[in-house]
Each structure stands twice: as structure tokens, then as C-alpha cells.
Design a protein around this nucleic acid. Structure first.
Length: 251
DNA sequence: AAATCCGCCAACCGCAAGACT
DNA sequence: TAGTCTTGCGGTTGGCGGATT
């Protein structure tokens, strides 16, 4: 089991007061002791009926809080760490279909929680939209995701010659992407609109949109998505096959 | 070295839908 | 059928820590 249980506090966190506290319930970061109690209780009795679970386990937490802690952190199958390139593509693709249906999207990324995906979207993708001064829900931005970012991500994972039709490699997308100038604007923006070193995560989207032939070298970064335990697996292979088919048939 | 800024993410809140009585 | 409880979801917030000034 993953023993990395996040930024647990060793001392009692500062209490915030509200309705829960009126009932003697704690809020804020979970302590190691609380995690242990919750984990042991669920291991023995199973999950569900969170309010009574919280009481029975002796936790001064709301059922809601217990459920969230379990689902987002303590569950043994929760995957933590960087979102891989494949996962980024999948998130972009699924979001284009379903919008902010985070839990639905999370179902297709084993081990990832809706919260994590939502955080990824808000901190990475929406940030890009803001820098491009466009609405994240606009057709222009969606097209940019589809015709620029996703092919770039695909290209980065495997050499373009192996997976993409020749026209896809440099295809800036349909000319009706108004307000965007194909790859140019994205490339220009990615070159100099923010200070170098602002982003420590080498798998973040913006690094995928550097100029055409510049593939950031991930080797040795520990972020190789095909490394064992870092995003591989059958589900990913099938996803990959699906995306290959999908993007090789794009206009 | 200190102050400030900023990105990230855990955790909270409110609401809605479904289950139960 | 109506009321209450539980669960799940999406949006938002606050704190931590690293980067920058």
C-alpha cells in the first residue's frame, strides 16, 4: 500500500469554527491519527454510511469529510504524482466531450480522483486559456486544444512518424479557428510570455506546445509515461490505439 | 536575508438526486 | 406521498511551499 499519505499535520491544525464545530466536529487537514483510525475502521467494516461510520470510528469529523478523505487520499488504489502525458491527452479529449463532468472523466483514469483532475484542469488548462485571453469554453479554445495541443502531446509521447499521418504533424487545424493563428500564436506565447522556470512540472501542457520540432527531452526526468508504474498498462494501450485511430483520421 | 508573489492541491461548501422511512 | 437522510458532484477557498524580487 502507498504509504505516502500527503501533507499530514503532526500537531493539531488550527480549528476553524462553524456549524461543524458547534457539533464538536473538526475541520481542516487530517492528522496521522485520524487517517489511521479511518483506514483501520474501513478495512474492518467497509465503507459507506459515512455519518454513522464517523461516529462509530470515534472520529470527530463529518461523514462528508470522512468520505472525501477516503476517496481522495486513503483508498489503496489512488494514484498520486504527476499527470502523465497520456492522462493529459485523455483529460483533454474527455473534457471536450463531456465538459466539467469530473467524476465521469475520472472513471476513465484509473486511480485518479475527480478532485485531482479538476485541479489539473483549473491550474493548467484554464491558466493557458487566460494567457491566451480567451474563454475556456469557447470554440476557439476547444479547437486549439484539439488541433494544436493534443496532436503535440501525441507527438511528444511517440515520434510523429510512428503514429500520425503526415498531414497531422504540422496541421495547424482548421482555418476557422478565429482569434488564433494556428501554431504561431501558441508557439510565440509559449516562447516568451512567462518567465523561464516558472513551471517545474515538465509534463505540463504548455511545455507541449513549443515549436514544431522541439520535443522536450523527458529522458531521465522520471516522467516517462511508459515507465512501469508511471502510467502504463493495458487500459492505456487500448486508449492509445483509440487515439491513434481518431487522430489519424482527422481532417 | 527578508518580503512578496504565485502555483498547487487538500479540503470545504452548497446543491441536487436518490434512497429510505 | 412527503419528509428526512445519505451520497455524489462541481465550484471554491485557504494554506503551504517554492520562486522571484
Amino acid at each position: 500500500m502507498d504509504t505516502n499519505c500527503g501533507p499530514l499535520v503532526k500537531t493539531q491544525p488550527k480549528m476553524q469554527y462553524g456549524e461543524n464545530e458547534m457539533l464538536g466536529l473538526r475541520k481542516g487537514p487530517w492528522t496521522v491519527d485520524e487517517d489511521t483510525i479511518l483506514l483501520n475502521y474501513i478495512t474492518t467494516h467497509g465503507e459507506g454510511h459515512w455519518n454513522s461510520l464517523a461516529r462509530s470510528a470515534g472520529l470527530r469529523r463529518s461523514g462528508k469529510s470522512c468520505r472525501l478523505r477516503w476517496l481522495n487520499y486513503l483508498r489503496p488504489d489512488v494514484r498520486r504524482g504527476n499527470i502523465t502525458l497520456q492522462e493529459q491527452i485523455l483529460i483533454l479529449d474527455l473534457h471536450s466531450r463531456w465538459g466539467n463532468r469530473w467524476s465521469k472523466i475520472a472513471q476513465h483514469l484509473p486511480g485518479r480522483t475527480d478532485n485531482e483532475i479538476k485541479n489539473y484542469w483549473r491550474t493548467r488548462v484554464i491558466k493557458q486559456a487566460k494567457q491566451l485571453r480567451c474563454d475556456v469554453n469557447s470554440k476557439e479554445f476547444r479547437d486549439t486544444l484539439r488541433y494544436v495541443w493534443m496532436p503535440r502531446l501525441l507527438e511528444r509521447i511517440q515520434p510523429a512518424s510512428q503514429i500520425l499521418q503526415p498531414q497531422m504533424k504540422l496541421d495547424p487545424g482548421p482555418t476557422e479557428i478565429q482569434g488564433f493563428h494556428g501554431l504561431d500564436s501558441v508557439t510565440e506565447w509559449s516562447k516568451g510570455s512567462h518567465p523561464a522556470g516558472s513551471y517545474s512540472d515538465s509534463s505540463s501542457v504548455e511545455l507541449q506546445v513549443h515549436s514544431n520540432s522541439e520535443h522536450s527531452d523527458c529522458s531521465g526526468s522520471g516522467l516517462d509515461p511508459w515507465e512501469e508504474g508511471n502510467g502504463g498498462g493495458e487500459w492505456l494501450e487500448s486508449l492509445w490505439n483509440e487515439l491513434e485511430i481518431k487522430y489519424s483520421s482527422l481532417p
